[in-house]
């Protein structure tokens, strides 16, 4: 992961969001935009974590449900979700999360390696743990997370 060009080499900006009971961070350089209330079209007979597709200004973007990916229970139906659009390779992918909360500047030295299992979620989905004052932020490894599983 490269640090953001504006930040000091040892610091990186993280977008914080929640998925289930997990507080996650995503290096801001991956984040294209954050959306709310976009109609998701369901797609059937595809991996369960794929919620569907959205129309992002003319581009068809796959939306991955982070809760399903992590094996968490789904959010209640009325709850509002947000979609973080991330760039992976030459493709935009939407991450469905509970809510985006904040952007923090994390010091590299405060980031610790991920334990093999984080609240039931496989550790390889994360790049490290960043310690905030009151809580821990699991930094997403989107390459691993969005690696395609071909069955």
């Amino acid at each position: 992961m490269q640090p953001s060009p504006t930040a000091n080499a040892t610091k990186r900006k993280l977008a914080l969001f929640e998925s289930g009971h997990l507080l996650c961070g995503l290096d801001i350089i991956h984040v294209q935009e954050i959306n709310k209330n976009i109609a998701v079209t369901a797609v059937h007979r595809v991996p369960e974590y794929v919620r569907g597709v959205i129309n992002l200004r003319g581009e068809i973007v796959t939306v991955v449900d982070l809760r399903t990916k992590f094996g968490f229970a789904p959010l209640s139906q009325e709850a509002e979700e947000q979609i973080i659009i991330v760039r992976l390779g030459d493709e935009n992918i939407g991450l469905l999360v509970d809510s985006v909360s904040d952007v923090v500047i994390a010091d590299e030295k405060d980031i610790e390696p991920t334990p093999p299992n984080l609240a039931g979620v496989p550790g390889h989905f994360f790049k490290g743990i960043y310690k905030l004052e009151q809580s821990l932020v699991a930094i997403l490894n989107i390459e691993e997370l969005l690696a395609r599983e071909f069955e």
């Binding site: 991996p47 796959t62 395609r148």
Partner: peptide, 16 residues
């Protein structure tokens, strides 16, 4: 329009 890489494996769809 082409589908994303996660959906291209599905033989049921030709695109969107």
């Amino acid at each position: 329009k082409p589908l994303g890489s996660h959906l291209r494996q599905s033989q049921l769809y030709a695109g969107a």
